[in-house]
Amino acid sequence: MSLPSDPIDPVLADALFRPVRAGNAFEETMERMLQAIRLGVVPPGGRLPPERELSARLGVSRVTLREALRALQESGHIESRRGRYGGAFVQLPSSDPLPPPGDVEDTLTLRYALETGAAEVAASRSLTPQVRRHLRSCLADTATSGISDYRRTDSRLHLAIAEATATPSLTAAVADVRTRLNALLAAIPVIPANLTHSNEQHKAIIDAILDGDAVAARVGMAEHLAGTAALLRGFLA
């Protein structure tokens, strides 16, 4: 087992522990940390850099970093130890075989193409009062659902956006890719900090659709999908 004092490869550390984008800071922090663990930049038994150093390298607040470290501890990827020689130590959790990377990327790329387009088209249409009420209802259900029910209400909201395009073939395609996505999501933990962020993004997307702002709807959906993609790549790729 590697000792806590083992040095970290500086080239790989610079490549992975680099500043993340502001839009999905938590999710991208998770992705970078998981990549560092999976690639052995910090080996099993090795200690992660101190919080102050990591937050500076990643360009995120200590609060965001601590949320990511807490999620990694709960998922079994790190162990937190107290005391003079304490810190966050890497451990590899036992898990089921990962899906082929090609499956992950194929699903994420297809989802991006379909759902950004659906949001843009929905915002471009003149929506009926019934459709507008349905979008608001799905948004409220997702925002108030518990962890155990979140992915069901999240799926329903994304399908409601597709339905708002009044294009049955697009709705069917979004339903198909969502089925594939949910199979991937089932392989990673549900992270409360990510759900809070997702709810904020959902509101921005629905507001843009209801306001008829097609550009904002597409950009908002792209940002939202990038957050989920970062988590899936971090855990599964």
Rank of each mutant, 00 (worst) to 15 (best):
A118G: 04
G86K: 02
L114H: 12
E115R: 06
R81V: 06
L48E: 03
S80Q: 13
G87C: 08
D103S: 12
R151N: 09
L127Q: 09
I147F: 05
T107R: 11
S155K: 11
Y85L: 06
E105T: 12
T144W: 00
E163N: 03
R52W: 00
A88G: 14
V42R: 02
A123C: 03
G87D: 05
A164D: 09
A166F: 12
L157F: 09
Q130T: 15
Q130V: 12
C138T: 07
R111H: 04
L48F: 04
E120N: 06
I78C: 05
T153K: 13
T144S: 15
P99H: 04
L135D: 11
L65R: 02
F89P: 08
E115V: 07
T153Q: 12
P49A: 15
V60F: 14
S75D: 15
E115K: 07
L110P: 02
L110A: 13
A122L: 02
S75A: 15
H158L: 09
P100V: 02
R132T: 08
L157P: 06
E51S: 14
D96R: 10
D149P: 07
A56P: 00
V121N: 04
A56W: 00
R156P: 05
L139T: 01
D141E: 11
E51D: 13
E79I: 02
D154Q: 12
R62T: 13
A166W: 07
R111K: 13
I161E: 11
E115M: 11
E115A: 03
P93C: 03
A71C: 09
A166L: 10
T116H: 08
F89D: 08
H77M: 05
G46M: 02
R57S: 14
G87F: 03
E67M: 01
T128R: 10
A88W: 10
L65C: 07
R57P: 00
S94N: 02
L69C: 12
Y112T: 14
G83V: 02
D154H: 14
S155C: 13
L108D: 00
T109G: 10
L108A: 09
R136G: 14
E79N: 08
L110H: 13
P93T: 02
V60I: 14
Y112H: 15
R84G: 13
P97Y: 04
P101Q: 04
P100T: 03
R84F: 14
P44T: 02
S61D: 13
G117S: 11
R84C: 09
L98K: 05
A122R: 03
F89L: 05
S95G: 06
